[in-house]
Design a binder for these strands. Sequence first.
DNA 1: CCAATTTGCGGGAATGTTCCCATCAATTGC
DNA 2: GCAATTGATGGGAACATTCCCGCAAATTGG
Lengths: 337, 337
Amino acid sequence: MKRHQVTIIDIAKELNLSKSTVSRALTGHKSVKPETRQAVLELAEKLDYQRNMLAISLITKKTNTIGIIVPEFKSSYFPTAIIGAQEVASKAGYTTVICQSDESYETEVANTRVMLANQVDGILVSITRETRNYDHLKIFQRKGIPIVFFNRVCDEMDVPKVIVDDYDGSFRAVSYLIESGRKRIAHLAGPASLKISEKRLNGYKAALRKYNVPLDEELMISYDLNIDKVKIYVNHLLNLENRPDAIFAVNDPTAIETIQVIRKRGLRVPEDIAVVGFSNDFVSGLIDPPLTTVSQPVRDIGRTAAQLLIDQISREVADWKSIIKVLKTELVVRKST
Amino acid sequence: MKRHQVTIIDIAKELNLSKSTVSRALTGHKSVKPETRQAVLELAEKLDYQRNMLAISLITKKTNTIGIIVPEFKSSYFPTAIIGAQEVASKAGYTTVICQSDESYETEVANTRVMLANQVDGILVSITRETRNYDHLKIFQRKGIPIVFFNRVCDEMDVPKVIVDDYDGSFRAVSYLIESGRKRIAHLAGPASLKISEKRLNGYKAALRKYNVPLDEELMISYDLNIDKVKIYVNHLLNLENRPDAIFAVNDPTAIETIQVIRKRGLRVPEDIAVVGFSNDFVSGLIDPPLTTVSQPVRDIGRTAAQLLIDQISREVADWKSIIKVLKTELVVRKST
DNA sequence: CCAATTTGCGGGAATGTTCCCATCAATTGC
DNA sequence: GCAATTGATGGGAACATTCCCGCAAATTGG
């Protein structure tokens, strides 16, 4: 069963040529006679020859592979971003290796090892909610392998990042809630370790301040994005003597779960409590009631990040310019408010 | 900027050893003195040494990589299946390379070339709706590279497949519709080229026959799964003089779109027309009204397929046993019926 | 106590390809 | 007509690693 893989040497022998000439013919080098090239190409086709990228990469030190590390695959966010990234990558001749860290720091570290061992030309990373130490990512910098962060970025590293205007989006969403008459707006925030949590929280606070709504610590809950815990926090909010009339959630899955919990308590959305999410997941327009949310150009984020990475890979000089691309969000008002 | 990658030779020189010994120490070979191994391991750690999988794979002829080719990423189906597959794969020490064919035959062919060039140890495939010719997949058989199909399988090839009991699921769904009093049940089927379409259609027909409901060709529409066309077909059904009182869709996205179209016409679901889907996508329980659908163990499908593939890779003898794993579906009754 | 085995390590081929240098003929320039 | 250039090809090193073979020293067995 051990079948010999067809190599350029097989082709060379068959045609009485040297492997050099065959190699040149296959890579489209000019200094090879048209008839010779033709013969090589035909035989290659006939023998089902496929170039061995391992050998090529070993010698050229380029794998034409980019790694993508994302924390999860549950919401539509990361799959969508990946589609965007793959679109750009495959157009530029790059294969993608995708790893999900499952929101676990240890897994993320293991993933980076896989990427290094596989000699990826660059990586796209969105860190886990647990990640506090960035040594495993700094290795790439030391080795001169480009990194681009997207969505969940690492502030400690001076590399390109692709994010959205979380602060603005959050600010507009909360402003809208206030303008439509809501008085007590709670915020179910993400973990403080994530920059996006912080920015969205700041946007929330800024909007309240602008309209002179007093900040109430009781209404700001930060949680670890473990969706099962939403129930506890929302119930806690609903049990307050002065319960909120609106909840702004850090993302759509949280908002959706929030709606379920509110309804289970016999309250109505939006009549009793308005709910706003963030990201405009695919589901959000389809649920009952359709969710008001801050829409992000997710696919574009993936595209932009991949493009930034490939640009870095292409230019020999690793200038590590810390470009930060901020894409625009848009408030999508639906029936949940 | 051209930095030398740390190799076992660097370690060998530093410790006055041969590369053979370093290699043995790193791979955990027994015949190496504990102190020597310790020294090697420590230096490797200190130098940020990462084994070069390219060189290893080149010589061992094993990449510990499996390829996954799926038609799309839009519904939650394939991302979920991939999560399952990755779960099993990474546990077994395999990296996954994912390609989406975007429902295009040409892209699928290109994807298989990428897989071959990258020397994957095996592939998991779900074909596009366009795929009629399987030569690009048969190459893998010829080269002795294991293939496992899942969901969208190819009948012409004698390799393991993972599917669900489409016929049964469909049969039960339609039976349920009839038992709950529906008289004219339409079926929005998938393209005839896909086995799943055929089986679901057959289940539909069998259920009608069982209850002596006459088959009406007018109510069976086969389409290419291009979601934009659902509007046309559903409107066509609603315009029939004797319009259906239930629509059984080949999958959930189709069912969801069907509901939207029905409502846009001012009709109610389920009062005027019941709608049933297939797959129980993540969204389906959250939409309004929650969708009655045939639930598939999608993640298990991915897991099973990956396990089958890895089993094939591990056993030297390529016995190509054409195992067909049929997983069970379950009818989930919600408010859309 | 000497042969036999084990332990620990080094040398070198092999993996499939690219790329540089060399070769040799044919063509060009003056 | 002869040096210089061009065209087409061959030879071999290099890439980072594994794996087989060999060799010496140390340990074992009777």
